[in-house]
Design a protein around this nucleic acid. Structure first.
Lengths: 214, 214
DNA sequence: GTCTATATAGCGATAGAC
DNA sequence: GTCTATCGCTATATAGAC
């Protein structure tokens, strides 16, 4: 069992945090699902907070490295650098994670939740992980959409990441009569999503003057 | 104090739930901020869950009634029924709530969070409140955008509500170097938001065949 | 309606045997 | 590394005086 226990704890925490939230999930629920002892969490991670941190660390580094690698390949590959291809470079790695199995789907769900839920400490950690990625994507998009003021581009990027987070979080709009989960056919949904975001980012500027820069 | 205590409890709960989340907020924190006794919550509401329910009930009914009234006025007023005007009919009432004071801003923040956070029981309540509103807006949008398959329209509406929830929740994208809060200038941001959503909803259909209807 | 006092339960965390 | 047992704390909820 030894190190395998650590992985089972991460898997169980990932699933339960994604489903019920951090505060609502007890260490007892996690260790039960992981078939581990209650004390194992503190032996392997030190605290509940550090367990959550480890859940993110396990997957986030690779995810964002893949995003940057795809963007670099896009910019040096000689192909067309359009809003669609840049968005795809950002989104596809996370979609691959979802396709890789149920644990990947749970992680993206947790990641979406964290954008709204995250405590101050977790936000600091996520910021460190995301800052270089977002900055590079923003720069590239800025070159692709030179007609936009920086403040305008940043808000549109904010909206776009909002859609992505909301969708990955699997938010069930209580009012919608259809299942809002990403069931099957994620390829079709990805195309819908990318088009929705792309036309939003590419919309003509609204700025009349140039006073709004932040 | 009598009934005033009830209002102060609702105000404090609204603020703290919006800021820290439901599970993370204790009744002690709420009663302290409301300058009320701990037992007052159970006297006035019965339980913590029913307090949350009451926080939503206090504002949600009026909000959705105003949305429906605006949509009706739009459809019978003889003016142009465009995607932008329909979106405005949906969004403006919540924006008015935000402008009305800090409590309105807190409520919309809580409402945004709830779309991702909500427990099963709260989701049932929200569904009942939202179902008729969303259905009518979807019908109207369907007439304005007849080229879209129903499934396509529903997902685009889902994306749009995602952006709105995310923005109202005041999600601080940890990676963004700018303040992601809605500081001042909400008029400018509203125009940005509505344009982003409108062009996304109006994008040409992606459907090749007609097999995808749900 | 508001208060004090308390019941009851679950939480994260730790000590120490094995 | 894994276990049992438990500490110390906080939570929601309630009973009963005023």
């Amino acid at each position: 069992m030894e190190d395998d226990t650590r992985q089972r704890l991460l898997d169980a925490a990932e699933a339960l945090f994604a489903e019920h939230g951090f505060a609502e999930t007890s260490l007892r629920a996690i260790t039960t699902q992981a078939r581990a002892n209650l004390a194992a969490v503190h032996y392997h991670f030190g605290s509940k907070d550090e367990l959550l941190h480890a859940v993110f660390a396990r997957r986030l580094k690779m995810l964002n490295e893949e995003r940057l690698a795809r963007l670099t390949a896009l910019e040096t590959g000689g192909g067309p650098v359009t809003v669609e291809t840049v968005l795809t470079a950002f989104i596809e790695p996370s979609l691959r994670l979802r396709r890789a199995g149920v644990q990947g789907e749970r992680f993206t769900r947790l990641l979406g939740r964290a954008q709204i839920d995250a405590s101050e400490a977790l936000r600091d950690f996520l910021r460190d992980q995301y800052a270089p990625v977002l900055e590079r994507f923003q720069q590239t998009l800025g070159r692709t959409l030179p007609q936009l003021q920086p403040g305008e581009l940043r808000w549109r990027l904010y909206f776009a990441l909002g859609v992505l987070s909301f969708t990955y979080a699997g938010a069930r709009l209580p009012q919608m009569p259809f299942a809002a989960r990403l069931v099957g056919d994620e390829e079709w949904l990805l195309r819908q999503l990318i088009q929705f975001l792309a036309v939003g980012l590419c919309a003509p500027p609204l700025e009349e003057g140039a006073e709004k820069t932040a």
